[in-house]
Simulated assay, not measured.
Amino acid sequence: MFAVIFRAKPGVQDSQYIETVTKMRDLAFEKYGCLDFVAVTEGDQEIAISYWQSELAIKRWKSDAEHTLAQDLGRAKWYESYIVQVVEIKREYKYNL
């Protein structure tokens, strides 16, 4: 399993941002097999972690035309800066989840 960690310093996030995030999340689940998605904002930092079965699915998601447009809008309007990390999960431990 793989995870994509998106850490950002948000800029102005308008109603178009909210619509786009919802649409992109739905697209990730429905078309590219995203397994889970969690996002939080604290202070001036946003962190989103999505989980995927394969690195290929992540690459396809990244290159999707609608997602590419959303990324362009993010850089132009909604984020001051961000970093994306793709990691492979080697082990997982659970307690009552």
Rank of each mutant, 00 (worst) to 15 (best):
V86Y: 01
D72N: 10
R91T: 13
T41E: 12
S15P: 11
V86L: 02
Q16Y: 05
N96Q: 11
K59C: 08
E46L: 13
T20A: 04
A28C: 06
N96L: 15
Q85V: 14
E42H: 09
K90G: 04
I47V: 15
D64S: 10
D72A: 13
M24K: 00
E42D: 03
Y32S: 02
K90E: 09
C34M: 15
K59S: 12
S15M: 06
P10N: 01
K62R: 11
T22R: 05
G74P: 03
W61F: 15
P10L: 00
Q53C: 00
E66H: 06
I89Q: 07
Q13P: 13
L73E: 05
Y51E: 08
V86G: 04
Q85P: 07
V87C: 03
F2A: 03
L35C: 09
R75D: 12
P10S: 00
A39P: 14
V84G: 02
F6I: 04
A8I: 06
Q45M: 13
S63H: 13
A65C: 11
L73Q: 04
M1Y: 03
K90F: 05
L97E: 15
S15W: 07
G43R: 04
N96F: 15
A8K: 04
A39C: 13
F2E: 07
Q45K: 10
Q71S: 10
D14A: 06
Q13F: 09
D44R: 09
V86D: 00
W61L: 06
L73N: 04
I58D: 03
I89K: 00
T68S: 04
G74R: 03
L69W: 02
D64V: 14
S50M: 07
A39N: 14
M24G: 02
L35K: 12
C34Q: 10
Y32P: 11
A70D: 08
S54N: 08
V4M: 03
T22Y: 00
T68F: 04
A48S: 09
D14G: 07
K9A: 05
Y79T: 11
R60Y: 12
R91I: 07
E46N: 02
K23Q: 05
K94D: 00
F2G: 02
W78P: 09
F2T: 09
E42K: 11
I58C: 08
S81F: 02
T41W: 10
K59D: 10
E88Q: 10
I89P: 05
E88W: 03
D14M: 05
T20H: 07
R25V: 11
E30T: 10
D64H: 13
V12I: 13
K94P: 01
L27N: 04
L35I: 14
E30D: 11
K31S: 05
E55Q: 12
V4Q: 02
K62S: 11
L73Y: 12
